[in-house]
């Protein structure tokens, strides 16, 4: 752990419910489940004070939302995979941290707010991740949304604000990004035993991304985000953001031990469980042309410039 980071390690996990609800339907799902279980043990063995989740299946519109309800209890059902069963949950949220994260985000120019309402619909990805990684609420958690319109600078700043909040409260964290790699699913119902990555192109890109992860090249992936979005992401939102948030919160470099614990198909999409642990050795010596950003200034309005 470097001096300016409170993050013990980062995890990248898939949002689909199969590893939680039907791990035995296919050896790949079981493999993902086993990888989740390994990560759960590693979290138990760490001295983390909090698990912080950034979920791509929690879209927000009005700024960035941060879950703050101390006892978040409900039974969740997925919009597509409702037939796999219900997901009852009872999560202990670190309310103080949620407030701190919100204020750290505001200090960096972001519009952010905490949500603290009984019955708030926690998203499938967060429910799956927290149910599998922290089943007994051994440590408290917090969840942050992914704004639909946010692009790179806003997401980088949101990641930095997470680290600010951890530093100011002196909390050691495991951070979790919930996202697929390629996210194109089959558009028909399939026999789970026949699940596979939707196309060989998606698979090749996933394999390339996993090579970067295994080499600990997180900042390189962050720089590649726009390309990844264009190549293997269904265009539901404006950008592929998880690597931006993860890299910004963990320090924007390539000095990590990377480990790919599992990579499998989830109804056609690419699901991987990956761990990144800060280390000393750096990989490569690249320079990047994407600007770094500390404070969010809002979108640049170019429409009314230059015609005075």
């Amino acid at each position: 752990m470097s001096e300016d980071s409170q993050i013990l390690f980062g995890l990248y996990v898939p949002p689909h419910p199969q590893p939680l609800l039907s791990p035995d339907a296919n050896p790949g799902y079981a493999n993902l489940r086993a990888a989740f279980d390994t990560c759960r043990k590693r979290i138990e063995e760490s001295d983390a004070d909090i698990i912080l989740v950034y979920s791509t299946t929690w879209p927000s519109v009005v700024g960035h939302q941060i879950q703050a309800l101390k006892e978040s209890i409900w039974t969740h059902v997925d919009d597509d995979f409702h037939y796999l069963g219900s997901m009852p949950y009872n999560f202990h949220i670190d309310t103080d941290f949620a407030y701190e994260y919100c204020s750290a985000a505001e200090k960096r120019g972001l519009h952010a707010r905490t949500v603290e309402y009984e019955g708030f619909p926690i998203d499938t990805g967060s429910v799956v991740a927290l149910s599998l990684l922290n089943p007994d609420n051994r440590i408290p958690a917090c969840i942050v949304s992914s704004n639909m319109y946010a692009n790179r600078s806003e997401t980088i700043v949101l990641g930095k604000a997470a680290n600010d909040a951890l530093i100011s409260q002196g909390k050691k964290a495991v951070i979790v990004v919930v996202s697929s790699l390629s996210n194109r699913m089959f558009t028909e119902h399939i026999d789970p035993s026949e699940d596979r990555i939707h196309s060989s192109k998606d698979n090749e890109w996933n394999e390339k991304i996993l090579e970067f992860f295994a080499d600990g090249r997180l900042e390189d992936l962050s720089q590649l985000s726009r390309e990844i979005h264009g190549q293997i992401r269904v265009q539901k939102v404006v950008a592929y953001k998880p690597a931006w948030w993860l890299a910004a919160s963990m320090g924007q470099h390539n000095n990590y031990e990377g480990e790919v614990l599992a990579y499998e198909a989830l109804h056609g999409s690419g699901g991987a469980v990956i761990q990144l642990t800060p280390s000393s050795g750096s990989f490569g010596d690249k320079e990047f042309d994407e600007d770094d950003v500390e404070y969010y200034q809002g979108d640049r309005n170019v429409l009314n410039k230059g015609n005075d």
Partner: peptide, 30 residues
């Protein structure tokens, strides 16, 4: 706001009773 990617789905039970909290505007709609 019931978004499905695998086909078109229909509600198929006679009754539903619960609380709906808007994920985007939870301050307004519970």
């Amino acid at each position: 706001h019931w978004q499905t990617y695998i086909g078109t789905h229909f509600l198929g039970l006679p009754e539903f009773k619960s609380k709906s909290v808007d994920p985007v505007f939870p301050n307004l709609f519970r």
